[in-house]
């Protein structure tokens, strides 16, 4: 047998083995990394800062507001402060007057405030609205469908959506007057 040939064959075989092992190990490594990464990302959802806000359409129940229904996509080109709240929730109750005080001014500047209500009866909501003289639209999410599509857990949760329909900021928990104003300015359309 030709020694040169045998050496070459051996070398060839060695190379093939190395390639095979590398491929198998690489595949396994990818699988392991995938497992660890998806375990790490488990709790993240598809509605997050930087993503497009899901559209929705709800009945509007604030009698001080002329709208019958609210559809988010109708507000393209405007900034939207989308607030999820309930009458029983104390921090919601606290921030409502702040929102009301800023509403007329910012509506003119092209920012809409929409406060999606999650109560089980409209009755208490009406009483609440009259108590604080709210004028911004209050859509009523009776099926909790919008809450579900925004993955809202604690109340209040507020989404600040820019004129392109993109979520700029998600705030869980109550807001102060200053903070609301700061966020509203962030999502104000350019003049």
């Amino acid at each position: 047998m030709n020694i040169e040939k045998a050496k070459a064959a051996k070398k060839n075989k060695k190379r093939n083995r190395l390639i095979f092992r590398t491929i198998v190990l690489a595949l396994l490594l990818v699988a392991v990394i995938y497992a660890l990464v998806s375990n790490f990302n488990k709790d993240k959802t598809d509605v997050s800062e930087g993503t497009q806000a899901p559209d929705f359409k709800l009945q509007q129940i604030n009698e001080n507001n002329e709208l019958e229904t609210v559809r988010l996509s109708d507000y393209e080109g405007k900034g939207v402060m989308l607030n999820f709240w309930g009458t029983w929730c104390k921090p919601c109750e606290k921030e409502m007057p702040y929102m009301q005080s800023l509403y007329p001014e910012y509506k003119k500047k092209g920012v809409e405030i929409i406060a999606v209500n999650l109560d089980t009866t409209k009755f208490v909501v009406e009483k609440f609205i009259n108590k604080y003289d709210l004028t911004f639209p209050v859509p009523y999410d009776s099926n909790k469908e919008v809450r579900e599509s925004y993955h809202v857990e604690p109340l209040p949760t507020t989404f600040f959506i820019n004129p392109n329909g993109e979520i700029v900021e998600i705030v869980e928990g109550g807001l102060t007057l200053d903070k609301i104003e700061g966020y509203l300015q962030q999502i104000m359309p350019e003049q």
Partner: peptide, 23 residues
């Protein structure tokens, strides 16, 4: 007339309030 309704009544800081929105 139903003047006020508290689904899950509690007294908070001497004020009537509702703890949750479930009756």
């Amino acid at each position: 007339d139903v003047t006020q309704y508290y689904p899950d009544y509690e007294l908070e800081d001497e004020e009537p309030a509702s703890k949750t929105n479930f009756p």
